[in-house]
Amino acid sequence: MARTKTNVRLPQPSIRDRERDLGSGVVKSARRVFELFELFEQLNRPATVSEIVQASGFPQSSTSMLLQTLHRMGYLCWNPDDRTYVPSLRLNMLGGWVHDVALPRSNLRLAMQELSRRTGISVVLGQRTGRFVQYAHVVFASSLRDDDVPIGVVRPLVETGLGYALMAALPDEEVRRVASACLSPQGRAGVVRSVEQVAEMVAQVRAAGFAYSTRLQNVGRASFSFGLGQSGGQDPEFGRESSLLGLALAGKRRVLEARLPDIIAAVNDVAREYLPDVRIEIDPKTPIHTI
C-alpha cells in the first residue's frame, strides 16, 4: 500500500540557535550521513525519499544513492510496500557501549521518554562542546514540532538554562574562563553581560540543584534544566565525561509554570527509577527562582 504524501514538519532553528561551525576541511559526504540520521531522529518514523529530500534540502539523486548505500550496509531498512526507509537496530547499537560504561545501571533514553510522558513536555539532552551546549537528542512531546528545539544545534553556555546546569558541575575558575570566552564577541546585547553575572547565576543553580530559565529562552518559552554529574560509572574517565551532560524540560512558559511542582516530583522519581548511577535529588521545598 502506497504511503500518503504528507508535508514534513520539523523544528526550525530560532535566532538563538546556531549551526555547528565545523571549520575547514569538512568531509561533506560524512556530514550528510549523520545529518540524515539526525533527520530520522527528529521525524521519529519511516520516511520516503521525497520526504527526506523535502526536509533536508539534499539533492534527490545523491540522496537516493546515499539511502541505497546505507541500506546495503545494514544501517537502514527498506520497505518496498510503502517505499520508506527507517534506521536499523544495527545503527541503534553503535556506540551503545559508551553509555553502558558511563551509566551501567541507567537508561538515559527511557528516562527522557518517561519524563516527557509524565509531564507532557519535551525533554532535551544537552552536551557541552567547548563554550557551547549542543542539543544531542530530543524527546518531543508533540507531533507539532515547529516550536521545539532542533537536534544538533548549539547555543553558548551562558545563553541557555541548560548551559548553566552544565556549568554548575565545573570549578569556579573554569566557569569564569568559559564565561569570558562566551562574552568576548563584539557588540553583545544579551541578557547576560558580565563574568560576575554568570558566576552568580551558576552559584544559584548549584544551590537549587536546577536551572529554571525564562529570560534565556525564546519569547514565551521556559526550561527546567539539571546536570547529570556525579556519575557512578565503573570508569572514572567516563564518569567525568557524564558530568558534561544535562537534561532540560523545555516548552511554553505558561505550561512549565503551571506544572513546576509536578516537574520536580517527576525528575526525582524518574532519576531514582531510570538513572541510579546519577545522584539527583531536588528538594521540592526549594524556592524556584528564574535565571
Score class of each variant (00 low, 15 high):
57 G>Y: 00
59 P>W: 02
59 P>M: 03
60 Q>V: 09
60 Q>N: 06
60 Q>H: 05
61 S>F: 08
62 S>N: 02
62 S>M: 02
62 S>Y: 00
62 S>V: 04
63 T>G: 03
63 T>D: 03
63 T>H: 01
64 S>N: 07
65 M>K: 10
65 M>E: 07
65 M>D: 07
65 M>R: 10
66 L>P: 03
66 L>Y: 02
67 L>C: 06
67 L>R: 00
67 L>Q: 01
68 Q>P: 00
69 T>S: 12
70 L>G: 02
71 H>I: 02
71 H>C: 09
72 R>A: 05
72 R>M: 05
72 R>E: 10
73 M>T: 08
73 M>R: 11
74 G>K: 01
76 L>N: 02
76 L>A: 01
77 C>E: 15
78 W>M: 03
79 N>I: 01
79 N>W: 03
79 N>H: 02
79 N>S: 04
80 P>T: 03
81 D>R: 14
81 D>V: 15
81 D>P: 00
82 D>W: 00
83 R>Q: 14
87 P>G: 00
87 P>F: 00
87 P>M: 03
88 S>Q: 00
88 S>M: 00
88 S>T: 05
91 L>G: 10
91 L>A: 08
91 L>S: 07
91 L>I: 08
92 N>H: 15
93 M>R: 14
93 M>G: 11
94 L>H: 07
94 L>D: 04
94 L>Q: 13
95 G>L: 09
95 G>R: 05
96 G>L: 09
97 W>V: 13
97 W>K: 12
97 W>L: 14
97 W>Y: 11
97 W>P: 00
99 H>V: 10
102 A>Y: 07
103 L>R: 08
104 P>H: 12
105 R>W: 10
105 R>K: 13
105 R>M: 08
106 S>H: 07
106 S>P: 09
107 N>W: 07
108 L>Q: 08
108 L>F: 08
109 R>V: 13
110 L>Q: 12
110 L>C: 09
111 A>G: 06
115 L>C: 06
117 R>V: 07
117 R>L: 10
117 R>T: 10
117 R>M: 07
117 R>K: 12
118 R>V: 11
118 R>I: 12
119 T>D: 06
120 G>A: 03
121 I>R: 02
121 I>H: 04
121 I>Y: 04
122 S>M: 02
122 S>T: 15
122 S>K: 04
122 S>I: 04
123 V>M: 05
123 V>I: 13
124 V>Q: 05
127 Q>I: 13
128 R>M: 12
128 R>H: 04
130 G>I: 09
133 V>G: 04
133 V>E: 14
134 Q>H: 08
134 Q>M: 15
135 Y>W: 13
136 A>M: 14
137 H>Y: 14
137 H>L: 10
138 V>M: 04
138 V>W: 02
138 V>Q: 04
138 V>A: 03
138 V>I: 15
139 V>I: 15
140 F>K: 02
